[in-house]
Amino acid sequence: MGATAADPASSALGLTMVQRTPGAALRPYVTRLCAYREHYASPVVRTEVAMPGAVLILAFGTPMEVGGARLTSFTGGLGDRYTVTRMAAPTEGVEARLTPFGARRLFGVPMSEVANLVVPVDDLLPGWGPATVARLGELTSWRDRLAAAESLLAARILPAPPPDPRVVWAWKRLLESSGSVSVAWLADSLGWSHRHLVARFHDHVGLTPKASARVIRFDRAMSLLRSGADLAQVAAACGFYDQPHMNREFRAMAGATPGQIRPRPQAGAGADSDT
């Protein structure tokens, strides 16, 4: 089973969370589990950036605004655009980060049907979703909630039909190369036509291989920028044609420019420009 941090001692204003690393059997499908509680003095608006995975929110209490809809527990597929959320009242629950193949096995539908969508858990996972939320809501210990969430996810994901190992291989090559390998090389390596590769990605991932590569490249650039890396170096390291190209991708997938993501330099240090 996975490892869990200690329960929080209190729920002061702000965000409180405890994370759990899923056990080895579930890790190819669920990369992170987090129990959280949010309580702010005034409404909080966030921009949720695109990521090479899917998010499952199993929450209790007041709904939040997600992409213009009011939702409590929700999920969806991979996307290549950002989403705006607004939380105006206290809420708590469990968040699971899913790989494309974990989402495919959990949802039991082609991932193309939920790409770039956010939907209520009840709609996509009827029966399982409401029962899981009710079960987690009965537990008061965050450690118990995370353990129960892992058990319930494993019981649904692991017996489901496994993903096509050739699509898994192609996805891993994209991740390992940070999205730099060509779609033509992937198709040739698998002995597939471009059309067949796209069709298999639509089913298992939701996005095309090219769109998947864009999101993976963006995700790496986000990590580098958040660590304080130089803008020009990030653009070159992540395979953007130039800085304007990186700016366009960030506006589409983060709703901000790279310069707005990168930590501000210390006083007296030189600053980069993304204009």
Score class of each variant (00 low, 15 high):
Gly206Val: 06
Gln233Leu: 12
Ala232Glu: 14
Ala237Ser: 09
Arg200Ala: 12
Ala237Gly: 08
Gly191His: 07
His202Ala: 15
Ala221Thr: 03
Asp203Val: 15
Val198Glu: 10
Leu207Ile: 06
Phe218Met: 12
Lys210His: 15
Ser193Cys: 04
Arg220Leu: 13
Arg217Asn: 08
Asp230Tyr: 02
Ala236Arg: 14
Leu231Asp: 10
Val215His: 10
His194Asp: 15
Gly191Lys: 06
Leu224Lys: 03
Phe201Gly: 00
Asp203Leu: 09
His196Gln: 14
Ala229Met: 02
Val234Glu: 02
Arg217Ala: 13
Trp192Ile: 01
Val215Glu: 08
Trp192Lys: 05
Leu231Thr: 03
Asp219Cys: 09
Ala199Leu: 02
Ala213Lys: 03
Ala236Val: 10
His202Asn: 06
Ser193Asn: 06
Pro209Gly: 08
Arg214Met: 09
Arg200Leu: 07
Leu225Arg: 04
Met222Phe: 09
Arg214Pro: 03
Arg195Met: 14
Leu231Pro: 04
His194Gly: 13
Ala199Asn: 11
Phe201Ser: 01
Ile216Asn: 11
Ser223His: 15
Ile216Trp: 02
Leu224Gln: 02
Ala237Pro: 00
Ala213Thr: 08
Gly228Ile: 05
Ala235Phe: 08
Arg217Lys: 14
Arg214Gly: 04
Arg214Cys: 05
His202Trp: 02
Ala211Pro: 05
Ala221His: 02
Ala211Trp: 04
Lys210Leu: 14
Ala229Gly: 00
Ala199Ile: 00
Ala213Ile: 05
Val198Gln: 06
Asp219Thr: 11
Leu207Lys: 11
Ala211His: 07
His204Ser: 13
Arg226Glu: 13
Ala237Asn: 03
Gly228Cys: 06
Ala236Ile: 11
Thr208Leu: 05
Arg220Phe: 06
Gly206Glu: 07
Ala229Val: 04
Asp219Leu: 03
His196Cys: 05
Gln233Ser: 13
Leu231Ile: 11
Ser223Cys: 10
Ala211Val: 11
Leu225His: 04
Leu207Ser: 08
His202Asp: 12
Leu224Glu: 07
Phe201Glu: 01
Ile216Arg: 11
Met222Lys: 11
His194Gln: 15
Ala236Asp: 14
Ile216Leu: 12
Ala221Leu: 05
Val205Arg: 01
Asp230Asn: 12
Leu207Tyr: 12
Arg214Gln: 15
Arg195Ile: 12
Thr208Phe: 04
Val234Trp: 01
Ser227Cys: 05
Ser212Asp: 10
Ala213Met: 11
Met222Ile: 14
His202Gln: 09
Phe201Leu: 02
Ala221Tyr: 01
Phe201Trp: 01
Ala232His: 14
Leu197Pro: 01
Leu224Ala: 10
Val234Lys: 00
His194Lys: 15
Ala199Lys: 10
Ala232Met: 14
Leu197Gly: 00
Asp203Pro: 05
Arg220Cys: 05
Asp219Glu: 13
Phe201Lys: 00
Thr208Tyr: 07
Arg217Gln: 14
Ala232Leu: 15
Lys210Phe: 07
Ala199Phe: 00
Val198Cys: 07
Ile216Met: 12
Thr208His: 03
Arg200Phe: 00
Asp203Asn: 10
Leu231Arg: 04
Asp230Met: 09
Ala199Cys: 01
Gly206Phe: 03
Asp230Leu: 03
Leu224Ser: 03
Asp219Lys: 03
His204Asp: 13
Val215Leu: 08
Ile216His: 10
